[in-house]
Design a protein around this nucleic acid. Structure first.
Lengths: 342, 342
DNA sequence: AAACAGTACGAAAACGTTTTCGTGTTGATA
DNA sequence: TATCAACACGAAAACGTTTTCGTACTGTTT
């Protein structure tokens, strides 16, 4: 069923059909009725591709994420999808698996008319190699782009982040208030924007309390593989009474390992993680965690993107914004809390 | 940069440019070179929409899932995405949030030229209300459809499932072999295809061992909200030494609750869940679980769909297939195992 | 010299829309 | 009665491709 078919069957022109279906006042009442009745009867639906081609808008947005199995990205995705759908946009999802090449390929694939804009978090490899030519190209094509969580200063575009520095600062402050002084940090290698911020917050909190920053208390784990031996020797060789971890897995895993050694959590050692995911909730003891509010982050990213798409203003015409989402500490049993939680 | 632009700049026709870029042997060698050099220089990329409109193929597939935050669906999605990308297809992801209406809306949105086929798991509401008109419409439009995990017999299409009955049977058998006799089942309300299968397997295993099926040992929880009181009174009022749960959350949650009552797992009570997700791995004790191999399921679903798309044969011409994926028991500390696991 | 095959290219239709502009008809006004 | 606005509709271009078919030219064959 196409406009052409309807037009032929009803003995009118294509333009008349098109207008009649839109209740145009150029068309007479009874013609409108005939056309609409016929269209309904034969279940006519306009072809999206043709409309997109004509209007130069696809109503699709491309979401490029490093990993879909991680709770945080999943939650952000959920926010993006929900907001987008509510505003008439579909989401094309691409997973890069932390690979630069797949990031490039995916974006190239979508940049030629398939989407009106991108929302993405940089892959690990992209951040490591500091390679952003593909994003610059998106910029040149004037395709709107919103970066979230894993961002870079090299690209001028809208961004949405959490206050990594402040969040880590607050987490460490909680340890300090609880009387802890030998506070460790378990983080990734340096190239992640989020880890950098969190490490900075960790250092800042210690310093602002006159505590020395002992580099031996900072463990940098290779991303993606949890080396138990590394973690075990770290805990064996250092005197530690509190641990801040830059993500949930690091926290759960190291908490499990020290418990296996007989350490009592939280009495002898407290733990705080980042990303308040499903693991934190069901861990034993429950993991106190900095909630990143991924859903809200996704909604905001989608709103920023769609607003820019609909304004039609490029990054040059309308200055870019960076939204900061406040993270909040969810207290569970891995820390000692003023008001006990269940 | 369009074909038309290149043609104008080079003083040739659009068709010549189009053919030259494809190395057509209709075009002279030096023209080909000129055109390709020019195209490379100006970074020409063909417009996907135009190609799709012309060829009546979008190279997009629509994936409709009830929930993206759940580990199992996420894993399946990952398999779909990876296989699809490898074969030149993009994935448009829609989340129904277990709502029939959103399922309908999403499919309507994509069915008009946006995708070449669908892969989906039915929403809870859809299964509850047994309402499949939207799927019948997809059938009529001859848009290929693959159902996975949550399926229905009412729709004739390709399907991919796990052997729910057999898996539950095997899980119960393990309990029986371990000497358990008071085996409970925690499941959802009846309308889920997977729960039906798993309950059948549970019953079958008991019967085949001459054990009575005590209906009081079957707890049917409302989907989506974990009513702790319900679970607690269930365990308080029944004498139970093993529990099979139809999903991971039910298992973790009830295991935590009975542990809080002082029950030793696995000595006094064993647990087996379904979906070997991240929670099972990090739970304490680690949850023995029926792995559903979601990634593989996704790959197979994508393969079935893409094969059908590329064959061009409708469900009537080429008979539908149902692939069964064998689930495997991952043994952890919530059961007593022949060979102890770490 | 006529016929012919091969080469290299262009014109145009097609995919299914949207939208601008033109035009014929009607009825009211000067 | 000539003029004009309002009304109802159609023709055609446009979006960016692909593909079929036609054709001008070159060089070879009889």
């Amino acid at each position: 069923m196409t406009l052409k078919n309807i037009a032929r069957e009803l003995g009118v022109s294509i333009s008349t059909v098109s207008k009649a279906l839109k209740n145009s006042n150029e068309i007479g009442a009874e013609t409108i009725e005939r056309v609409q009745a016929f269209a309904k009867l034969y279940n006519y639906r306009p072809n999206n591709l043709a409309i997109s081609l004509k209007n130069k808008r696809t109503n699709n947005i491309g979401v490029i994420i490093p990993d879909i199995v991680h709770y945080f990205f999943t939650t952000v995705f959920r926010g993006i999808e929900q907001y987008s759908k509510k505003h008439g946009y579909n989401v094309i999802a691409c997973v890069t698996d932390e690979s630069l090449e797949r990031e490039v390929v995916n974006m190239e694939m979508l940049a030629n008319g398939s989407v009106d804009g991108f929302i993405m978090a940089l892959s690990a490899e992209t951040q490591k190699k500091n390679h952003f030519d593909h994003l610059k190209r998106i910029n040149e094509l004037e395709i709107p782009l919103v970066l979230f969580d894993r961002v870079t200063d090299e690209i001028e575009c809208d961004k949405v982040l959490i206050n990594d520095r402040e969040a880590a600062y607050n987490a460490v402050m909680k340890f300090i208030e609880n009387g802890r002084r030998k506070i460790a940090l378990i983080t990734t290698e340096d190239y992640f924007s989020v880890s950098q911020g969190r490490e900075a917050g960790y250092r800042q909190a210690l310093e602002s309390f006159g505590l020395p920053v002992d580099e031996a208390l900072i463990l940098k784990l290779p991303f993606m593989d949890l080396d138990e031996i590394l973690i075990n020797t770290f805990f064996d060789s250092q005197d530690i009474d509190a641990v801040l971890c830059v993500n949930e897995i690091f926290a759960i895993h190291s908490m499990n390992l020290v418990q296996k050694k007989g350490v009592n959590v939280p009495e002898e050692m407290e733990f705080i993680g980042f990303t308040d995911g499903i693991l934190s909730k069901y861990a034993k003891p429950g993991l106190t965690s900095m909630a990143q509010h991924g859903f809200q982050m996704g909604e905001i990213a989608a709103k920023m993107l769609i607003d820019r798409i609909q304004s039609g203003l490029s990054e040059k015409e309308e200055p870019c914004r960076t939204e900061i989402i406040e993270s909040t500490l969810i207290e569970r049993e891995s820390t000692i809390n003023a008001i006990p939680v269940l």
